[in-house]
């Protein structure tokens, strides 16, 4: 039974939900079982996946980022304007954004602030900046991002290749690298990490900077898919990213996160939208059905966790 470690068991529900949903979509619309079909199904998955990983990195250190949606929107606006017209200024702005995230981590840590409130304030800041930059929808995606996001690798669609790549990179950084252990330790037991001689400020700053990096990538890839941007383009991402992490088996506290699970969770949420439209559910109830799917998956997880708890007691 060494194959079924607790870590892998946690992945079981998200993977099963995704498989079940994918099966249902294939059953409802067999034409999706093709290169083009899969490409269309998972088209928007890449930015959502990246934003979910970013949220996961924040949740790993016991914080929560309520500004994810407005931040990704702001990055999208920068990508569609400065990055296209003056790439150097564009990259400087984006680098500044990542630095701002690191600074947030430092402030939150040093002043012992609640992350929910600080990121809530930041959501106004990013939202305001985005509106100032692009008061009306517009801009153009830089050609190379557009090329990257619409490229067609052989056999497997771009969205799936990218998702696997993101999962692998995040898995190695968070679960396998030495610094990943320290970062998860900050979420698990901050004091013991400190006593072991690590700087918790630096660790939190790094976690936030990494999250900023992934969120910047989310905004850039989003513009690559949509070709233009507006200030409200990604507002849903705040809630989607939190839901994706939770669906993937992550916890709000304790540094218990799963990068592969988060990617699977994000894919499940992307697919849920397609599934609902194939079911011909009235558009009125589409959002509600997404809420219901979230509840069902969490109920499944509860059932499995209980079984797991019973198993360890034996």
């Amino acid at each position: 039974m060494s194959f079924l470690t607790a870590e892998r068991l946690r992945l079981l529900v998200p993977v099963l939900s995704l498989a079940l949903l994918l099966g249902a979509v294939f059953y409802l619309q067999p034409r999706t079982m093709s290169y083009t079909g899969l490409n269309l199904l998972f088209n928007l998955a890449v930015p959502i996946t990246l934003a979910t990983i970013a949220q996961m990195l924040i949740m790993m250190v016991n914080d929560l980022d309520l500004s994810m949606g407005t931040f990704v929107s702001f990055v999208a606006c920068v990508t569609a304007t400065f990055l296209q017209s003056d790439p150097i200024i564009g990259f400087l702005i984006l680098a500044g954004c990542i630095a701002a995230y690191a600074a947030l981590g430092v402030i939150i840590h040093l002043r012992n602030l609640p992350s929910i409130v600080v990121t809530l304030g930041m959501s106004f800041v990013w939202g305001g900046l985005a509106v100032l930059l692009l008061p009306t929808p517009g801009g153009t995606a830089p050609d190379w991002i557009r090329w990257l996001m619409t490229s067609k690798p052989p056999l497997v669609p771009m969205a799936i290749v990218a998702s696997v790549l993101i999962a692998v990179v995040a898995h190695f950084v968070v679960m396998r690298s030495a610094i990943g252990v320290v970062l998860r330790g900050v979420g698990g037991n901050e004091r013991s990490v400190q006593r072991a001689g690590w700087s918790v400020v630096r660790a939190r700053a790094l976690a936030y900077a990494l999250a900023g990096l992934f969120a910047v990538l989310a905004g850039m890839t989003l513009v690559g898919l949509t070709t233009s941007a507006d200030a409200n383009i990604a507002l849903r991402y705040t809630l989607l990213s939190i839901a994706g992490v939770i669906l993937g088996g992550g916890e709000f506290v304790g540094g218990r996160v799963s990068p592969i699970g988060a990617v699977v969770g994000a894919l499940t949420l992307t697919l849920a939208a397609a599934f609902l439209s194939f079911l011909r559910i009235s558009p009125d109830w589409q959002i509600g059905a997404q809420g219901a799917i979230l509840i069902v998956v969490l109920a499944l997880r509860l059932a499995l966790n209980r079984r797991e708890a019973r198993g360890t007691r034996k």
Partner: peptide, 22 residues
Amino acid sequence: SAGVRMLFTGVIIIGVVVAASR
């Protein structure tokens, strides 16, 4: 403008929280 209003609201929320923090 609307953007400036949002920007200030955000800065003020963060400023109040930082100032009030112990």
